[in-house]
């Protein structure tokens, strides 16, 4: 349950960006959350709703894009979207894999009222 702590970091970035752009309000926040990011999107939403009160993002909508884990085999070069976290190539059985996506925890975009 470290999502509240992560949301506190998010608000530091939101407030800094809003100040830079001299925005009056933040109206939309879009996050990219990887399957292996270690956070639960639903808990992020709850934490965001608790935290946003009396901030510049009080009326903001939170949009979370869940990013699945995607790997590329370094032997057969096939790319696979994984539903589990078994790091073995489904095509050739190799364990030499490169992670292409799925660990990210990013603030992608925000919409401001200026």
């Amino acid at each position: 349950m470290h999502e509240l702590s992560i949301v506190a970091n998010l608000f530091e970035i939101l407030e800094e960006k809003a100040r830079e752009k001299r925005a009056k309000k933040v109206t939309l926040v879009k996050l990219r959350v990887g399957a292996l990011s270690g956070v639960v999107s639903e808990f992020l939403e709850t934490a965001f709703d608790i935290y946003k009160k009396d901030t510049i993002a009080a009326e903001a909508i939170l949009k979370i894009v869940d990013i699945p884990l995607k790997i590329e085999c370094q032997k057969c070069h096939k790319k696979t979207v994984k539903k589990d976290f078994v790091f073995i190539c489904e095509h050739c059985g190799s364990r030499e894999l490169k992670m292409l996506q799925g660990t990210e925890l990013l603030l992608e975009k925000m919409e401001l009222e200026i």
Binding site: L28, L106, L107
Partner: peptide, 11 residues
């Protein structure tokens, strides 16, 4: 209204 691209890691 203005949309800005941030791409910043939360951690």
């Amino acid at each position: 209204k203005k949309e800005i691209l941030v791409l910043e890691e939360l951690l």
